[in-house]
Amino acid sequence: MNHVVCIAYVPDTETKIRIGADGKSIDEADVKWIVSPYDEFALEEALKTKEAKGGTVTVVTYGPARADAGLRECLARGADEAVRVASEGTGEIDSLGVATILAGAVKALPHDVVWMGNKGVGTDAQLLVPMVAELLDLPHVSPVMKLEWGDGKITAHREIEGATEVVEAPLPAVIGAQKGLNEPRYASLKGIMAAKKKTIAVKQPADVGYDAAAGAAVSWTKLELPAARGAVKLIPADDPNKAAEELLRLLRDEAKVL
């Protein structure tokens, strides 16, 4: 069974976000980049499945040269091959554009399962899994917390509001990984050494069927930091009962949320 894992190389969740000079993107200076946390669950599940059932794991990303470091990390953990579609010079792009590129890259690779994080932690649009599935004409399930393998099909547990849906889908399929699916492994020293020797295939968007001239379907016109909140109103806690009563009174009469 062959696996393709689409990853995103995103600002570390610890990173402080600063607004860039153009006023509509982040200042990338001093940003530490990581493989998006949900993509790690996707990679781990692909690696585990490969170990159990054979096949290959290829990681794919769309991004600038720095994303090679993310791909190498995936190779070090056990992925066999890596492809980067270069983002340099593409200009403005939105989720539909990225989905088009990823779907184009996946099409050229053998794939029984296409894995992704159910969301990134960057632009947070959470659109890619269904978009890539639609563009590949495949079924998808996301966000998946638990997975069972059947004959030519999967049974996936999907988290929804206040319940879990159990979904069956035939393969090939696209799966959006959710936290809880597994515990991602660390790379071994041997894996890190082996990854250094591997070649990352670099493609251009045009190679995978993306027409940059078409432009982005959605544009960012402004990026701002959230408005600062007023100072906290501290309630003396010498007497817990009085503090609690005062707090609830404020929530009811001042904040009007009770």
Partner: peptide, 13 residues
């Protein structure tokens, strides 16, 4: 965006 650390104004093409 960036999990609420920033806010983007967005518009369709």
């Amino acid at each position: 965006v960036y999990s609420g650390k920033a806010q983007a104004t967005v518009t369709p093409a």
